[in-house]
Design a protein around this nucleic acid. Structure first.
Lengths: 249, 249
DNA sequence: CATTACTTTGCGTTTTTGTGCATGAAAGTA
DNA sequence: TACTTTCATGCACAAAAACGCAAAGTAATG
């Protein structure tokens, strides 16, 4: 049997079932597992499949929307993501919100981090689950059309039943006078519930959003433990926040 | 024997079997393998065949993987999606699984449909929420790395609390003998819970997956109300399913 | 017809490629 | 932790390809 035939067969199986086990292919084609593994390795190098322990899975599931890097201030958000990594330790339980900054963080997480992530954002969940050592749990509920996060009573209810080490979220409005603010009532409810579900709260925000306010208050600044921006902590722009009981990154 | 003759013969064999082995041709025509190799090399340079170690394969063989949209059998899946639309009525409550076919369905839903969709797939949820008149509710839980759907006890628990009009899901294995089958135990559990949560069950599957079985059984065919494939209902390939208490589309 | 130039073919040798097996390392699992 | 499965690596062997070369065939020309 030709190598190409075998690989075509494997490809077909993957397209059909989204995954193959080396042992299965080996049995089906009566060839050694070594050969299968070498085929999978080759196909993986060509980008046709994703090799995993025990076999391979299709690549088509690899998140279709993430092409086209049209994220606003992406460079800054990547910087923020890098800084945030310092807060993440092995075996932590983390809760995250949504937003493009959080997506950047999800991408930036090192592959060897072993942790559990709760998230209310399906996008973040899909990004996180690409990491082999993360357990990803989506807090489900009604999906908000505008913010692409889960909202509603069911989300708040589920959040009331967990307690995590660290919560990461973005901020819509953030200022000394008004604390953390939002424009959407539903989102406010969810963020408050997230606040109650965590020991430590970190806000990831580009500096541009600081000193701005929205209509509805989420919480006071004293409830925030960490503030992570793309600026250096001693930047004069952050002056107003440097004396607070709030760690800058 | 003339070179043209030989190459015509080789071409015929390739059209017939999609591949040739150098040794076979050599034996059949009583010429040296070198000559065959040289012929194949020449034909490959003209683009007539694809030369591989051990022989050659038809052009149509290797190509399909590289070209086009990376979703397997997307045309068929779009057809399935179109047919499925007939089952959807305004104000319905629908539950969906995951998979590329379901994504295609989510894309194909008309903008004016007003309905509520529960789904265990974050990808499907994100696609559905683009439609202005749909309410989208994600059944959250642990996100499966391999299938990108939510699995686990929490999912099953949430499913036990809802009752929907129609459930749409894909099938990994589907046959008269074994019913609907899956290869992943967790997925089996979730699918069974989905079955319990719905009044009507529709299976969306490309015909290629019919008459194939996986290791674990989800349910018998009599629990399925609709089977939607890309084929016409009276297609002879579906013969075995035409007499069942199961509506074909 | 003979000569020349060129192409095709087969054969022997060397290189490359593909496959299976053994071993120890790594990853996953109970 | 201990145990099993899977993986990577090196090795041996076989199959196939590439290469050079010589023999045989082909065509053109004087």
């Amino acid at each position: 049997m030709l190598k190409e035939e075998r690989q075509a067969f494997i490809m077909k199986q993957i397209n059909l079932h989204n995954k193959v086990l080396s042992t299965d292919i080996s049995a089906m084609l009566s060839i050694s597992e070594d050969t299968v593994r070498r085929d999978l390795k080759e196909m993986a190098e060509e980008g046709k499949v994703l090799k995993v322990h025990g076999g391979a899975i299709g690549r088509s599931f690899h998140y279709p929307f993430d092409e086209g890097n049209s994220v606003y201030a992406q460079a800054a958000k990547k910087q923020i993501a890098e800084k945030t990594l310092k807060l993440l330790k092995n075996d932590m339980v983390v809760l995250t919100g949504g937003g493009t900054t959080m997506i950047e963080l999800a991408k930036a997480i090192p592959v060897n981090l072993r942790a559990t992530f709760f998230t209310i954002s399906p996008l973040v969940a899909l990004q996180l689950v690409e990491h082999p050592n993360l357990t990803v749990i989506t807090i489900g509920g009604q999906l908000s059309r505008s913010s692409h996060i889960h909202i509603g009573a069911s989300v708040i209810n589920q959040l009331s039943e967990i307690k995590v080490d660290l919560c990461l979220m973005g901020a819509n409005g953030f200022s000394i006078q008004d604390g953390m603010t939002e424009s959407d009532w539903e989102v406010v409810q969810v963020k408050r519930a997230m606040l109650r579900a965590t020991n430590k709260m970190a806000i990831l925000s580009i500096a541009e959003k600081l000193n701005s306010s929205q209509r509805m208050k989420v919480c006071d600044l004293n409830q925030i433990n960490y503030l992570i921006t793309e600026l250096e902590p001693d930047n004069h722009f952050l002056g107003a926040y440097q004396h607070l009981d709030l760690q800058l990154f």
